[in-house]
């Protein structure tokens, strides 16, 4: 097979010794962050309130400027000159669906980013339709935001971001204000975007069932990365995580406990049903 692993394993985001302190704050919100994120992966960022997750998101597309250190996105250093080009590469979906709707209708909102880039109108029409199709919102194109549910508004926000074809999408607790169904819809769409469009996803979340899907988990505490690795590595020490208020979902707790007891069970992520299947198969093997 002729696969270019150099391309697949490309480092898309590279942070070197990044420190950021808010004005009038004594302690830095982020201190000496070193982080590498590979292209096309799903990265979950977890940590308690105030640990610096949103600050990290805002640094990555230049909404905040680091005091020191380097931020390199897709080989391009983030500077005052490159910030508008970086923003084309990095889209953010924020937490509150009502506070990020700029357009008067769904299609106007999706077009907002394209208007900012000065895309000609006929291309905009195509891109808006394409983006709305990706998030299953095409039939709502002419609707006003107040007629949509929170989950639908977040889908529009996603469409608005992907319309400009970014390489990275950051979700800053984008599903935290949604009901379970809305959450599931958004997760499905994001997984589709990762697998079909190759978009790299950096998801800030408190939802442990979501963390399970990640290729890489980054744990922040008081502005520092205290752990970074695969889901298995991070959940290997649930006690440490519990101290941070991060408890793996029940299924995973059972799974981890069984593995610890030396029982031969798949260590990959298992859904509840898969776990049940695994357990009765195990039982029948004994």
């Amino acid at each position: 097979m002729d696969v270019d692993y150099g391309e697949i394993m490309k480092t898309l985001i590279d942070l070197k010794n990044v420190t950021y302190t808010y004005d009038e704050m004594k302690v830095p919100a982020l201190s000496d962050i070193n982080l590498r994120i590979l292209a096309h992966t799903w990265v979950a960022v977890v940590g308690v309130n105030g640990s610096g997750k949103s600050t990290l998101a805002r640094l990555l597309n230049g909404l905040l400027t680091a005091d020191s250190g380097d931020i390199i996105i897709d080989g391009m250093a983030l500077t005052a000159d490159s910030v508008w080009d970086i923003r084309k590469k990095v889209g953010i979906i924020f937490q509150n669906p009502d506070h990020q709707f700029v357009g008067a209708t769904v299609e106007d909102d999706v077009a907002f980013g394209l208007e900012n880039l000065g895309i000609p109108r006929d291309q905009m029409v195509e891109l808006v339709n394409w983006a709305l199709e990706q998030v299953n919102m095409l039939e709502f194109a002419h609707k006003a935001p107040q007629t949509l549910s929170g989950g639908q508004k977040q889908r529009v926000a996603i469409a608005g971001v992907i319309a400009t074809r970014p390489q990275i999408i950051i979700m800053d607790e984008s599903t935290s204000m949604l009901d379970p169904q809305g959450r599931q819809d958004i997760m499905k769409i994001m997984q589709y975007l990762q697998s079909e469009l190759g978009i790299t996803i950096l998801s800030i979340t408190h939802d442990m069932t979501e963390v399970i899907h990640a290729d890489q988990v980054v744990v922040l505490k008081e502005g520092q990365i205290i752990q970074s690795g695969s889901v298995e590595q991070i959940f290997a020490n649930p006690k440490e995580l519990a101290k941070l208020g991060l408890n793996p979902p029940f299924t995973q707790q059972v799974q981890l406990e069984l593995i610890k007891q030396g029982i031969d069970i798949d260590s990959k992520y298992l859904s509840e049903q898969e776990m049940v299947d695994e357990l009765w198969q195990l039982y029948s093997k004994m």
Partner: peptide
């Protein structure tokens, strides 16, 4: 919030 969202989407 809205101004930050607008800036993140390239409004200049």
């Amino acid at each position: 919030d809205l101004s930050i969202a607008m800036e993140a989407r390239g409004y200049n």
